[in-house]
Design a protein around this nucleic acid. Structure first.
Lengths: 108, 108
DNA sequence: TATATACGCAACCGTTTAGTTGCGTATCGA
DNA sequence: TCGATACGCAACTAAACGGTTGCGTATATA
């Protein structure tokens, strides 16, 4: 299928999903889908779809309890993103120092 | 239109574009589109489209010189990504300490 | 001047995406 | 047991996406 990192990026590339993820992670506790829906202007099915994408990326975990499905955010997949970024931080300040550090020519 | 952060994430959510970006940034110099194309198995127009998305996200800068268009990667938009991530690193180790740090209840 | 090179633009195609509506069903409370 | 609640599943739609092909054109070179 698709690698997990691509899944994570795709999941977070949508503003609605970022909002849902943010809401859930700040809430820090599991809440039923209906309650998630009440925070947004999208339909229940719309939110459910977004939650599925987030769940597929491991950014949200859902467990059923009775007739309710509790959602909880999980930031772990972001670690991979952070790791990915760490490679590029050598480049983003545009300074020759960091670049030559990467290239290993510290004497230049 | 679309906010810059969403553009950045969408641009990088595609594996081909990540590869192009990576190739360009490691190369550290501006190269013509044709040369970029030669590194991949996608058609020239495919690569051009990807470059346009990357350029629109500020991850690549292109300048014309004669009949050639030189592309150069720019990691600056990644800083915004890094900043975004920094908010969430409080959550990804799952420890109560970091969470309570965020909540400001250091005495709990 | 003729030819090759390096591109842009536009059309097209199949797939995915973001979102909706409709309907069915399991669970809970009165 | 009956109605409300909390959902899933499926179908649908309009738009975007990743990629292609065809054609036109400016620039460089022989």
């Amino acid at each position: 299928m698709e690698d997990s990192f691509t899944k994570t990026l795709k999941a977070l590339a949508d503003p609605s999903r970022r909002k849902i993820f943010h809401t859930l992670i700040v809430l820090a506790s599991a809440i039923p889908i209906t309650q998630v829906v009440s925070e947004f202007e999208i339909s229940r099915q719309g939110v459910t779809k977004h939650l599925k994408v987030l769940e597929d990326a491991g950014l949200v975990h859902i467990k059923t309890q009775g007739r309710q499905r509790y959602c909880k955010a999980d930031a772990k997949p972001l670690q991979e993103m952070n790791k990915w970024l760490q490679f590029y931080d050598k480049f983003w300040d545009d300074s020759l120092n960091s670049l030559t550090d990467y290239l290993g020519n510290k004497d230049v």
